[in-house]
């Protein structure tokens, strides 16, 4: 396989019981590429990126991340999860740990980094997301936007090569969306491979290399942002865009 490919999905199919959620999904993501995935709810977009770090299991097809194929082998899964960071819709910070401890937990226990070193790295990333002064606080004391930025920093502390974003701004109040998007834009500019499920079309226009539209469990349309927003080809894409841009 060419070494330039970060993620490869080949004919991926997935079922929830009898329900066919992912239908023959094919996707190649190159290193450093930024991809935005959008689509109506229930279209399978979250399921797809959750398959990439094996939070969900696919039943057919191949998923290859960083030249490692995802199988039932725990070793492969562990290896891939170390290289792939994920940011969730509801942040999922650990409420019983401080911000700093949240960031140090995985480096210390997974990468076996000494605490001092882990804390130094964590503070570096907390500075990048502009909340170093909150390090000693607990997640419950922060605003939603701050929590999501901590979650981004927490993922970055593992030094991942790929970042997955699962609707990172949809649980936030409008005034907090911008601070999170700014952080994500900065990250994109640093050359990180990113897959974002989001409805923030402004973000897609500024940073995405490609935009994917999913519906009914399949990839309907994939194009550069320019083409995607100005000349949507498929009628369902047109309908979706008209709905989402209407407000």
């Amino acid at each position: 396989m060419e070494n330039n490919v970060a993620i490869q999905l080949i004919g991926v199919n997935k079922w929830y019981g009898e329900f066919h959620v992912l239908r023959d999904v094919n996707l190649n993501v190159e290193r450093g590429e930024r991809i935005v995935i959008c689509g109506p709810s229930g279209s399978g977009k979250s399921t797809m990126i959750r398959c990439i770090n094996r939070l969900e299991e696919h039943q057919q097809g191949q998923i290859i991340v960083d030249n490692v194929e995802l199988t039932n082998d725990l070793k492969n899964i562990d290896q891939i999860r170390r290289e792939v960071g994920m940011v969730f819709q509801h942040f999922n910070l650990f409420p019983h740990l401080t911000v700093l401890e949240n960031c140090c937990l995985a480096p210390m226990w997974v990468r076996k980094v000494p605490r001092k070193e882990a804390e130094r790295v964590a503070m570096e990333y907390l500075e990048k997301v502009k909340i170093p002064h909150q390090a000693k606080k607990y997640p419950g004391q922060l605003s939603g936007g701050q929590q999501q930025r901590v979650a981004i920093a927490r993922s970055l502390c593992m030094n991942p090569r790929i970042m997955l974003f699962d609707e990172p701004t949809s649980a936030l109040d409008p005034e907090m969306i911008k601070e999170v998007l700014d952080t994500m834009i900065e990250l994109a500019e640093s050359g990180m491979t990113m897959l974002c499920v989001t409805h923030e079309m402004g973000f897609a226009k500024t940073v995405a290399d490609r935009v994917i539209f999913m519906d009914g469990g399949q990839v309907i349309e994939m194009n550069t942002p320019d083409e995607f927003f100005n000349h949507p080809q498929h009628e369902r894409t047109q309908l979706f865009l008209s709905q989402i841009l209407a407000h």
């Binding site: 199919n13 079922w15 019981g17 009898e18 329900f19 066919h20 239908r23 023959d24 039943q59 057919q60 490609r210 009914g216 469990g217 399949q218 990839v219 309907i220 349309e221 994939m222 194009n223 550069t224 083409e227 080809q233 498929h234």
Partner: peptide, 20 residues
């Protein structure tokens, strides 16, 4: 680079080894 899927894929039953 642009990919457009024209026809909607049918909902298939899950593979035999995952049901029953």
């Amino acid at each position: 680079m642009a990919i457009i899927t024209e026809k909607a894929l049918p909902s298939l039953p899950p593979p035999a080894h995952t049901v029953g």
